[in-house]
Amino acid sequence: MKGKKFKIILGFLLVAIVSLAISIYYYNKPDVNVVKTDAAYVLTAKNLIEEYQADETSTNKKYTEKVIQVNGMVHEITTLKGNSVITIRNADQESSIICHMLPNQRQKALQLVKGQKISVKGVCTGYLLDVIMVRCILVE
């Protein structure tokens, strides 16, 4: 009898520990790793902006919260709260792609020059006057 009771208690304990571990894991779930994640879409700045301007709602559904890679020309490099912000813009467009870079990209970002062709991978959060991307990295 004693052995049976012990096994039941042990079983309960095990279930409790496993569920606690799972919930702690989910609670502390890390953000998507932009470096390791392959881009769901690779496209040019021009095409991305044209897609947004043609149909914002469906383009939002397609790209937001996804890791995408955008190719285009550097228009401006600024610093915001210690992190680099790279603006990619096509000469014939009013809108740009504003890329908020991850902190470890600062050195690389500062070496860029206006007009240089670059590829940036990051998470798209949507479109205001420009397409906004966060947690970006430069792709070689």
Partner: peptide
């Protein structure tokens, strides 16, 4: 003023997911 709800950054990913 305009902002994107998905541009809000939280300490925990789970919070951001629930929020959005």
């Amino acid at each position: 003023i305009q902002l994107l709800m998905r541009s809000f950054m939280f300490k925990k990913t789970l919070m951001r997911e629930h929020f959005n």
